[in-house]
């Protein structure tokens, strides 16, 4: 367990130091929300109707942007190779890395989504469902996305490719996440969707680290 703790501490310190890596995706989230408000004319009814969809889709995209840098620095300075060679078991260290990434992307976005909900006129009664769905669903985004990031880390122009690989895999999370908020607004019980998000996140937590490890091994051999 100490390996996990050490890795957790290292990643935490590194991420806190590089503030732009944390900030840029979050700024993107709000910038894009502003664009939506401008493009639709800013009418409260329109914005309220599309608020769950806009927030969830933009969280997906912002998460995708933050994933690009997940392994890049460690890949370039050779830390990743050392980690895969020496850390035993390596997937545990990788899990720590992804979890720290999640606290600065998924968790941070969940907190900020409250502000996003406010400026998009989401009813206050739906705020709880939105936050819970994001809290339970975003770990899956970080974990599944990490597989894509690991596959494309060795490529020079991996950005669009990463989106191509990962976005189709995000479909279930998006459907259950945005669907939960929409149903809540329509006055329907939404516990099932939250459970499903939990199931997807747990399944990703158990399977994705192994896929990430395999993908990184592949990326390192080129």
């Amino acid at each position: 367990m100490s390996l996990f703790a050490v890795q957790l501490r290292r990643e935490w310190l590194l991420l806190v130091q590089s503030s732009e890596e944390i900030l840029n995706p979050l700024v993107f989230l709000f910038l894009a929300i502003t664009l939506f408000a401008l493009a639709t004319g800013g009418g409260p009814d329109t914005l309220q109707a599309i608020a769950p969809a806009v927030i969830w889709v933009l969280v997906l995209l912002a998460n995708l942007l933050s994933l690009e840098g997940l392994f890049r620095r460690d890949f370039e300075d050779g830390t990743l190779e050392q980690l895969l060679l020496k850390a035993e078991p390596a997937f545990l260290a990788l899990t720590a890395k992804i979890l720290v990434h999640w606290t600065f992307s998924g968790l941070a976005m969940t907190v900020l989504a409250a502000v996003a909900a406010l400026i998009l006129y989401l009813p206050v009664s739906s705020l709880g469902t939105l936050l819970i769905s994001l809290l339970v669903g975003t770990p899956a985004l970080s974990l599944i996305g990490a597989v894509g990031a690991a596959l494309t880390v060795g490529l020079k122009r991996g950005g669009v490719l990463l989106a191509l690989l990962v976005l189709p895999l995000y479909v279930p999370v998006l459907i259950f996440g945005a669907g939960a908020v929409l149903e809540q607004m329509a006055g329907i019980e939404t516990r099932a969707q939250i459970y499903w998000l939990g199931v997807i996140s747990m399944a990703s937590l158990t399977l994705a680290p192994f896929a990430v490890q395999a993908a990184l091994r592949v990326s390192l051999e080129q």
Partner: peptide, 20 residues
């Protein structure tokens, strides 16, 4: 790796889309 991850995902995608 990608094909494996995709294959695991396909049933979940189908279920979620059906639910949607």
């Amino acid at each position: 790796v990608l094909a494996l991850v995709g294959t695991v995902n396909i049933p979940i995608i189908k279920y979620s889309v059906n639910w949607w």
